[in-house]
Amino acid sequence: MIRIKNVLCPVDFSPISRRALDYSIKLARHYEARLHLLHVIAPVVPSLYVDSTRVEEAIKKQVDREMPKLVESARHSGVDVESIVRSGEIEMEIQVAARARKADIIVVGKHARPAVERWFIGSTTDRLLRRSATPLLVIGEGKRSTPPNIRRIIVTTDFSEGTEDAFAYGLSLGQEAHASLVFLVFLHVMRPTPVAIIPPLLPTVLEPQQSADQVRQELENRVPADAREGCSVETRVEAGEPYREILNVVQQTRADLVVMNIHGKGGLERALLGSTAERVIRGAPCPVIAIPPGKTRRMSA
């Protein structure tokens, strides 16, 4: 069973940040965890047209005014809470705070961005998704149930490294909430390859593709034996573009939460845009938990 003892919630006092805080409060109360509210004051770059000193003073006044309100809101809900204010690069300070507070999960808000802008690096949430060693719970603008009223959870996998982590996390959350669990896996669809003008000298060898029945059997074998204790379980095999199919299933089932693992990629690969996790987070109407490899094994025990 997953143990959540420390919840870290970075706040910037925006409406989406407030939604993340509300979710964090309910999560912390449900698990009787401590809530750590973090605000990071990013450096103000001096310029000819900007008085950096006045800007920093205004920011600090806002922090002094707004942070006590958030702390009081959490305490009023019966949650043990502390506030942290740091200065520095936002993503780095979040990771430092997560390590220092031994955070079991980081809850962040997802700001809606134009389609073109989505393809460019710049979002703190995007950078955390690529680099964080702590599970990341991303809250969007859609309306879905919060703990302990989560009723439908989608757990996705492609049988890559970290599958067991996602399964264990989703199962624990599902059993805690007595929710319906859908374990979702995808068939690898062979894409047509361009025909070369000059035939290759050696024959091309294609790896055999698993059939739907084989994939379904492997999925059933990987679902923990105790998965059906306290919650209903469904296994589904879909074919197609993974992120599109995940979003389709989320819409069909009106899921309250998606749990997925982040592949054990190297630094360069995790720095690239376009992963399934990023696309699901951008398009999902419900919160998404992204779990880095090996995290569940470190948290459980």
Rank of each mutant, 00 (worst) to 15 (best):
T124Q: 04
V50P: 04
S83F: 00
I25T: 03
P68Q: 08
L21W: 02
R282H: 07
P46V: 10
K26D: 13
I106K: 12
L48E: 12
I2C: 00
V71L: 14
G122A: 01
H263I: 03
S47Y: 12
A284M: 04
R152F: 00
E241Y: 07
A33H: 05
D158E: 13
V288I: 02
V108N: 06
H263M: 07
R18A: 02
R297T: 03
K60G: 08
A227D: 13
V55I: 15
R222Y: 12
I281Y: 03
V215S: 09
V63P: 07
V185W: 01
T53L: 15
Q251Y: 07
Y243P: 05
C231D: 12
P68C: 11
V205H: 14
N248L: 04
D22G: 09
V250Y: 03
I106T: 08
I197S: 00
N261L: 02
L70P: 04
L247C: 02
E117N: 10
E93M: 09
L202V: 15
P200R: 09
A28E: 12
I4D: 08
P68D: 05
T146S: 14
A115I: 13
T124A: 00
V50I: 15
Q175E: 09
Y243N: 03
V233I: 06
M260H: 08
P287M: 11
R244A: 00
T253Q: 09
S145A: 14
L257P: 01
S180G: 10
E176D: 15
R19N: 14
L27S: 03
C286A: 02
L27H: 03
V138H: 10
R118Y: 00
V205C: 01
R152M: 08
A225H: 13
E57T: 04
S180R: 13
A239R: 05
S52H: 15
D80H: 03
G142H: 13
A133R: 15
D256F: 07
F186K: 08
L70C: 00
G170I: 03
G174V: 04
E82C: 03
P199Q: 10
P293I: 01
G140H: 07
Q209F: 09
R99I: 00
R216E: 14
V63G: 04
P199Y: 13
Q251G: 09
G264K: 15
R3A: 09
R236P: 01
V50A: 12
L21R: 02
R113P: 03
K5A: 11
V81A: 11
V182R: 10
V107N: 13
R86G: 00
S52A: 15
D126A: 02
G267I: 09
E141H: 13
